[in-house]
Design a protein around this nucleic acid. Structure first.
Length: 424
RNA sequence: GGAGAGAUGGCCGAGUAGGCUGAAGGCGCUCGCCUGCUAAGCGAGUGUAGGGCGAAAGUUCUACCCAGGGUUCGAAUCCCUGUCUCUCCGCCA
């Protein structure tokens, strides 16, 4: 959320930034409701001031034994007026707030203007593409042949787009989770967190999934709970409504969670394999940083995610999302895309963002500098480190052999009982 | 699932026969003093948000004692609903 004062004073800039994002959010009514709210508020405050004064007067009259009935009667009416004005106020405030909650973050000045992913800026390309002397197969073909996953049976258990791993496949997924968590905790200094896998409405509002993107979520019927779409939500909300001590910043957490997404609007896209599932595993990196450091922290966080790919010897590229492709809450985002040989394309495997104080304002996450009395909003950042299912897919495709077996990346072997390859 | 107790400022913790209590006290924090360092000690200050006036220091008004309703001229204090925490019983991985 942007600060209401900022929107009021920089209305054109805000509107412009929505245009740059190629979004159609209409904020014209902001001005109307804003001035209405302010006018009503002023009136109420005056009336309340009067009421407070006369209440004191009534108190002292009663003490002295003076008759105050007429004054009481008058104040009774006035209280009624205040009550009516107040419901008027609430109504307008709600409308104003709804608009405010749907305004996306302002892109950082370094973010390239563009309409969609085709305008994203390539930052770097790392690693050597594998050189096959045969036609590389898709991971789902290889995986099903090796009997390490079975999408048919998964759909029987639940429905389309759910994973079901067996044997070395299940182990590979688990090994990667441990591999990633170990590197982030022991080498990059993150604290491991295991959060709830369901979150409430307030938490999703803090991080920006709600109110706008309810359709993307799985909701628990009869509860105010939702399945986590990403660990970003529970982990960022650890410090919801807190005032952090400056000396603890940056706070760095890493968490494994499964992620649940309805994938509304993506029917027909990536229908096969592990790329787009309703449930997938992900390791998340989350930081709470001081404003002046947050862009350095973003670079570091992105590199932390890249480290995993480097250790696995998977080729990838990093792109900076253009304004049109940027997520709602983000001011700047780097996507890390891993090479998928069968399709011959780079696919997103991590998304690392700086939200500046956009989420912090919604979640009321602040810090206090030593010697200062004012609190400030922290900057929040997060990124995948990495999406596990897609990493499995990438390993299978990049490490496939002519005979259909899969070589296990060397650094991962200690986590796989030291086996060197998955074969029939 | 049944029965109780509680929710107050950065933290701990007073305050319920309704009216200068934005809220005692303590801790913490900030500034100053003192002790050749440190610790201790002494003094002063120290909530948040919004609005008015002021160049600023400041000043003034409004709101906030879990949340939302209600009673009342007036509620941290009374009533209702909800949420969360704790204790006991039951059940259970």
């Amino acid at each position: 959320m942007l600060e209401i004062k900022f929107v009021r004073q920089n209305f054109d800039l805000v509107q412009n930034s929505i245009l740059k994002r190629c979004k159609s959010t209409n904020i014209e009514n902001f001005k109307i409701y804003d001035s209405k709210v302010r006018a009503i508020l002023q009136e109420i405050e005056e009336l309340r001031h009067r009421r407070n004064m006369f209440s004191d007067k009534i108190a002292s009259m009663k003490k002295k034994g003076i008759d105050s009935d007429s004054l009481v009667l008058e104040m009774r009416n006035e209280s009624e007026t205040i009550k009516n004005l107040n419901s008027d106020l609430l109504e307008n405030e709600e409308k104003l707030n709804n608009i405010l909650m749907e305004i996306p973050n302002i892109p950082h000045s370094s973010v390239q203007e563009g309409k969609d992913s085709s305008d994203n800026l390539l930052i770097r390309t790392i690693g050597k593409l594998p050189d096959f002397d045969f036609e590389p197969k898709h991971h789902w073909e290889l995986g099903e042949k090796l009997k390490i996953f079975d999408f048919e049976r998964a759909s029987k258990i639940t429905g389309a787009r759910f994973p079901l791993y067996f044997g070395a496949g299940a182990k590979l997924e688990r090994a990667l989770i441990n591999f990633m968590l170990d590197i982030h905790t022991t080498e990059h200094g993150y604290t491991e967190v295991l959060p709830p896998f369901m979150v409430n409405r307030q938490s999703l509002t803090s991080t920006g999934q709600l109110p706008k993107f309810e359709d993307d979520l799985f909701k628990i019927e009869g509860w105010d709970y939702y399945m986590v779409p990403t660990a970003e939500v529970p982990v960022t909300n650890i410090h919801q409504n807190e005032i952090l001590d400056e000396s603890t910043l940056p706070i760095m957490y890493t968490a494994y969670t499964p992620c649940f997404r309805s994938e509304a609007g993506s029917y027909g896209k990536d229908t096969k394999g592990l790329i787009r599932q309703h449930q997938f595993n992900k390791i998340e990196l989350v930081k709470f940083a001081k404003p002046e450091n947050s862009y350095d922290e973003l670079e570091r966080l992105t590199q932390n995610a890249e480290t995993i790919l480097k250790r696995l010897n998977l080729p990838y590229q990093v792109v900076s999302l253009c304004t049109g492709d940027l997520g709602f809450s983000s001011a700047k985002t780097y996507d890390i895309e891993v090479w998928m040989p069968a399709q011959g394309v780079y696919r997103e495997i991590s998304s690392c963002s700086n939200f500046e104080n956009f989420q912090a304002r919604r979640g009321n996450i602040r810090f206090k500098r030593k010697g200062e009395k004012k609190t400030e909003l922290v900057h929040t950042l997060n990124g995948s480190g990495l999406a596990v299912g897609r990493t499995v897919a990438a390993i299978i495709e990049n490490y496939q052999q002519k005979d259909g077996s899969i070589i296990i990346p060397e650094n991962l072997r200690p986590f796989m009982g030291n086996i060197e390859r998955i074969s029939l």
